[in-house]
Amino acid sequence: METLAVYVPRLITTKEYFAPGHRACMGCGEALAVRLVCKALGRNVIIANATGCMEIVSSPLPYTSWEVPWIHTLFENAAAVASGIEAGIKVLRRKGKYSKKPKVVAMAGDGGTADIGFQALSGAFERGHEFIYICFDNEAYMNTGIQRSSATPFGASTTTSPAGKVSIGQATWKKNMPAIAVAHDIPYVATACPSYPFDLMNKISKAIKIEGPAYIHILSVCPTGWRLPADLTIRAGRLAVETGIFPLYEVEEGKYVLNVDFPRLRPVEDYFKLQGRFRHLTQEVIAQIQERVTAEYTRLREKAARVRDNE
């Protein structure tokens, strides 16, 4: 992928649909991810955004960063609002009252997806609306002050799962949202990370063409919440992938493809030691996490290999 980095960037539009001047923190991985997503989506799109960092930083009245039609209503309902937009356009087109056929995209953070918006998302998947749901996963409720979510990784210290004398921080394992999306039998599921920008944009381009629901889970490094220097966002995202903690893969019609694979994964500690949220972890806990990451990665690799062997 790196070998393409000289030529490929020139193919990408210089047009910005997520304008600069927004109020995201320095080094925000999510703002970068949104920018790349918007470039790949182009202008024929309608975005339904859940409450969260991106909504707050991008739309303080009377300013807006959105060069495309965009709606924010509440925290837990992005998928339901997107359902309405998709259905509304469908009927208006049928009646000749709406000329374009924009792609409908719902965006939410990990809390708005894995926790409070979970039911609305499951409903929208089940009903089969033609839309892309993008989860920008920064692994906690960053906008409200770094509270834990069900997508916070095991061992991370947050304001509501603080590390303490008798606590290792988050004591539960990260909810596997992509697997849950796959379980809905939707046509396209993918993971992505802005540290791998072309992979991310390719996946968006692919999702646009899907008839039916598509789910893209993007790891969005949050220097503020992860206690990480703002200039290490891209490196942290790469390490998440290289350690196997956040593998990049896609699932098309149930078939797994591992997009970036490594002969040997880096130790998880390489990723942890950059971040203050894992600073308190003992070697025993790190070993426990390493074991789980290795096992999960092996399982994923096997799923992808089965698909390769069959083809």
């Binding site: 309405g84 509304g88 009646k95 409903g123």
Partner: peptide, 28 residues
């Protein structure tokens, strides 16, 4: 009746879907 009937999974989503349909200009 030529309309989209959205059988949502909760009343919260019912009104939320109505926000979406109404925002694109559909009578809801």
């Amino acid at each position: 009746l030529d309309a989209e009937y959205i059988p949502v999974e909760s009343e919260h989503s019912a009104m939320s879907a109505c926000l979406g349909t109404s925002a694109v200009g559909a009578r809801t």
